[in-house]
Each structure stands twice: as C-alpha cells, then as structure tokens.
Amino acid sequence: MRSILFQDKTIFWMGLCFLSLAIAALFLPNWIVNNVMFGLARGLAVLGLMLLWRTGLVSFGHALYFGIGAYGVALLEKYTGTTDIFLRLICAVIVSAIVGYLLGFILRGYRAIFFAMLSLAFSMVMYGILVKMEVLGSTDGFSVSRTTFFGWVPESKYALLLSLIIVCMASAAFVQVYLKSSLGQLSTAIKDNEIRVEYLGYSVARAVHVKYVISAIMAGLGGGLIAMALGQVDPDSMVNWTVSGELVFITIMSGAGSVVAPFIGGVVFAFLSTYASEFMPHAWQLVIGATLLGIIFFLPGGIWSLIEKLWKRGERHHG
C-alpha cells in the first residue's frame, strides 16, 4: 500500500498541481477562488461517482450523500454549536458512511437502470423529508456559520480553500491507491465480467458494497465542504434530483481516466455555469445540455481523454 502511495506518478503530479493551486490562490481574486472551491467540492462527489462509473454503475441519487454531508454540517452547528472544520468533516464522513453502508446492503445487488432508479428513489425520499419538515429547515434550509480552525476564525476564505485542497488531495490519493490495489482492479473488472469475478473467489456484492461506501463518503465530504463554502444548505440546490443529474453530468464531462479528472471537471463546470448564467441567464442549462450531448457523441472519454492526448503528443515531441 505504501509503495503505491510514494511511487505512483499520478499522485506526484497531482500533488504538484494542488500545491501550485494553493500558492496561486493567494494572488487570485475572490470570485475565482469561490468558483475553484465550488468546483473542488463538487469534484469530490464526482470522484465518488467516477468510482461507480468504472464498475458500470450510475447513481442517479448521489445528491443524497451530497445533502447528507451538507445537512450534517448544518445540523451539527444547530444542535451543538460546533463550527470547527475537523468536527464538521468528521461528522460529514461518519453520517454519509453509515447511510452508505446501510443502503449498500440493498444497492449492491442492483445493476444498470435499476441501480440508477433505486438510488434516485432513496435520494428523493430524503428530499421529500427535507422539503416538508419544519425541523429540518423545510425549503429554506439553514445558514451555516463561518468555519473555525481550533477556535481561530480566519478573515479570508483562504484557510477554507487550503483545507479543501488538502481534503481533495488526500481523497484522490486514497482513491488512486484503492484503484491500483487488487480490490480496486477487481471492482473495475466487475463491469467486464461478474461471473468470472465470483469464480475467482471474491464476492461481487462485497466489492460493490465497499466501492459504494467509498463513493458515499466522497460525496458526503463534498457536500459538507460546499455547505461551508456557500454558508448555507437547502434541499433544492443540494438534494433534488437535478443536483444528482448535475453531478453525473460532471462525471461524464470529466471522464473516468484519472482521479484528477473529477476536480478538473468540477472546476470547469463551476466556471461554465457562472459564465453561462451571467451572459445568458435563460440559456445556461441549454449550454450544459448541449455539452452533455456533445460529449456523449464526440468525446466519450471526457475532458480527460483530451488532456491525455495532448500529454502524449507533448511527450512525443520531446522524445
């Protein structure tokens, strides 16, 4: 396990990219920093979806965990007054892990459209509860206070961005180690041939379950962090099915080729939606929809496949 962590090229380059992002953010204007934060937080959820996508599973209800993470942070503050980043993150992880673990027992037996529909149903159950329950903030949701760091209340958003970068880096490294492991390879092989995996001596159900829980935790972390970045939570922008659809869209747009792809995709999406909704407020969904169709038709490997192509071309020129 350790050997993957220190020898893997992807992890090295990713570390370098995140480090330069952290330095660059010191000089970047606020609106860019904001978009980067939203993009990275969504990227975490997308990282989770990408894991499932590699097994051929599409969760059309991952907003469930996105929402659980976000509401976990908000309710933790409401009932205990806690605003500390570590407790918030731990809360988001634990709650989404528990829910993912429990639902995983059911979902691990489903494939294709039935997996998509059942995860959608679960997320809509949660949406139905949140929207109608006064105690849970109803359609208005809650506001989330500024995040503190062991009692220190930072002036700028930089501290939060830095934590976000660290969480993303750690999650991506973890996922990379997982994907390179026997279990990770096996789980990817499930998409190819389930019967063979079972006969090789590993439970397909368990492999899918493990993957599902990891992906739930990633989405929970993303949700918790976006709640902190936005300073509020509400059902329509965090749990409704359109959010799940948006996350799936970013997954397809990013491509499943690398653990870095979800973050690139997330940030691209954040800028795309900001620009589109600014310059054509009535047509930005149109842009998104057309992009989705375009990618399905012309770029099935997503943005990452483009980057890979450029990278290879660059290598050829140098070599």
Binding site: V58, G289, L292
Partner: peptide, 13 residues
C-alpha cells in the same frame, strides 16, 4: 438516460 437528461436541459431553457 444521460442523453435524455441533456435533451431535458435544452428543452427547459
């Protein structure tokens, strides 16, 4: 399903 989601977004706008 994803393709129809794209169509949905376009038609909505």
């Amino acid at each position: 399903v994803l393709a129809t989601f794209g169509i949905f977004l376009i038609l909505e706008d």
